[in-house]
Computed example of a mutant assay.
Amino acid sequence: MMAHRDIFLVIGVTFYLFVYNLLLQFENTLHYATLMLLFSPLLICWMVYTVLKHGKYNGKKLDKDEFGYQDKSKADLKMF
């Protein structure tokens, strides 16, 4: 249930920011874009908080490794 809420929230905030950018393109809609700019930090913080709190990580556990890469095996990584 929470995963669907996370996805819906991310899609909603992305659409909100897309509309904001679209309104910036036209001179007669700049006042709407300014109003949307006031609410965008709240929406982005709410989205980040929700994803971090309720999101699920489906990747490999790192165990004792300091960091890991999903696309490379441990043998392919070299010292730098």
Results as ranks from 00 to 15, higher is better:
Asn28Tyr: 12
Asn21Met: 05
Asn58Arg: 14
Tyr69Ala: 10
Phe8Glu: 07
Leu42Met: 11
Lys78Cys: 02
Phe80Pro: 02
Glu66Leu: 12
Asn28Lys: 12
Ala75Lys: 14
Cys45Thr: 13
Arg5Trp: 04
Leu9Cys: 05
Glu27Ala: 11
Lys53Thr: 15
Met36Glu: 04
Ser73Lys: 08
Leu43Thr: 04
Lys61Phe: 12
Leu42Asn: 07
Tyr16Gly: 01
Asn28Asp: 09
Val48Asp: 05
Leu62Asp: 10
His4Phe: 08
Gly55Phe: 02
Ile44Phe: 10
Gly55Thr: 03
Asp76Gln: 15
Phe15Arg: 06
Asn28Ser: 09
Asn21Ser: 05
Thr50Trp: 08
Phe39Leu: 14
Val13Tyr: 01
Asp65Met: 14
Trp46Met: 12
Asn28Leu: 07
Ala3Trp: 07
Asp71Arg: 15
Lys56Pro: 00
Asp63Arg: 15
Glu27Ser: 14
Thr34Asp: 13
Asp6Pro: 02
Asn21Thr: 03
Phe15Ile: 11
Asn28Gly: 04
Val13Ile: 09
Leu30His: 09
Asp76His: 02
Gly68Trp: 02
Gly55Leu: 03
Gln25Phe: 03
Phe39His: 09
Lys61Asn: 13
Leu37Met: 11
Met47Phe: 08
Val13Glu: 00
Leu35Thr: 13
Gly12Trp: 07
Leu42Phe: 15
Asp76Thr: 04
Leu52Arg: 09
Met36Pro: 00
Thr34Glu: 14
Leu38Pro: 01
Asp63Gly: 10
Tyr57Ile: 12
Gly59Ala: 10
Ala3Tyr: 06
Val19Gly: 01
Leu77Thr: 13
Met47Pro: 02
Glu66Thr: 11
Ser40Asp: 07
Leu22Asp: 00
Thr14Val: 06
Ile7Ala: 08
Asp6Gly: 04
Ala75Cys: 01
Asn21Trp: 03
Tyr32Gln: 05
His4Gln: 10
Gly55Asp: 00
Leu23Trp: 01
Glu66Phe: 14
Asp63Cys: 08
Tyr57Cys: 10
Val10Ile: 12
Phe8Ala: 08
Tyr20Asp: 00
Tyr69Val: 14
Leu42Glu: 03
Gly12Pro: 01
Tyr49Ser: 12
